[in-house]
């Protein structure tokens, strides 16, 4: 299987704070890979570095064989990288449809088929297409954020805490969608605090602790590992 994303020995700082330390990992085509770990472990920082919003001091980030560690964020979208940021960050004052249009910005305008695709996957968005996005519920906003990323046909979809702040039933729904996307062949890099759910859908997982990779393995391996159970899965 071809490597989609190869992160090699990156170090990221926020001023004096060393947030990500010597982290390396990779994501193969068609895989769902998850980064799990506690609050402040550096998971979101890693995603932001991959998508070009932050810079690494060392090492390299390769995306489909190309070093992207110095490429500007907006150019990476054209290369097929979609990042659904933490807190969803939908455009609150724009309509649902306009949000999707922004998602398809790199293709000028979304085609009818592209919109239908998204509406088929997220029927709620179709009902609310002309509604101002800020009035959607948390779950709907997450679906909009995911739809907005998927409409650009990304090679790699990066999701940052999609379950954050959602009711359990909605969390289930979001993870069902991730499973469906996986089945359809989408490559996904998932950052989650909800380790239990994340390990269930992931092919492979990396456990982060205070900025470094503490452990890695297949989702199933880690889900049964004693250390993980103790630290993240409540015994």
């Amino acid at each position: 299987m071809a490597t989609m994303l190869k992160v090699d020995n990156i170090n990221v700082y926020y001023g004096a704070i060393h947030a990500v330390k010597d982290v390396s990992f990779h994501v193969d085509e068609g895989e769902v890979v998850t980064l799990i770990g506690a609050n402040g472990a550096g998971k979101s920082t890693i995603l932001k570095t991959v998508s070009g919003m932050l810079r690494t001091k060392t090492g390299s980030i390769e995306f489909v064989g190309e070093n992207i560690s110095h490429t500007e964020a907006h150019k990476l979208v054209y290369k097929g990288l979609a990042h659904v940021p933490e807190g969803r960050r939908i455009f609150q004052q724009m309509t649902v449809l306009e949000n999707l249009e922004m998602g398809a910005y790199i293709h000028k305008n979304p085609t009818k088929e592209e919109l239908e695709d998204i509406f088929e996957r997220f029927p709620r968005l179709k009902e609310r297409r002309s509604q101002i996005a800020g009035t959607l519920s948390g779950g709907e906003q997450q679906m909009l954020a995911m739809g907005r990323a998927l409409i650009s046909h990304p090679k790699l979809l990066m999701l940052d805490e999609p379950s954050m702040g959602l009711a359990p039933i909605l969390v289930e729904q979001i993870f069902d969608i991730i499973k469906e996307l996986h089945k359809a062949g989408t490559t996904i890099l998932l950052v989650e605090q909800n380790a239990e759910m994340a390990l269930k859908v992931a092919d492979r997982a990396y456990v982060l602790e205070t900025g470094s990779v503490a452990m890695s393995g297949t989702g199933a391996e880690l889900a049964t590992s004693d250390a993980i159970k103790k630290a993240y899965l409540g015994g």
Partner: peptide, 24 residues
Amino acid sequence: TRIGKAMRACSEDKGAAELMGINV
């Protein structure tokens, strides 16, 4: 217009706009 909407997107959230491929 596309650029007009991009302007509104930038005025709301530059980071998110950048992630849409908009050159802020």
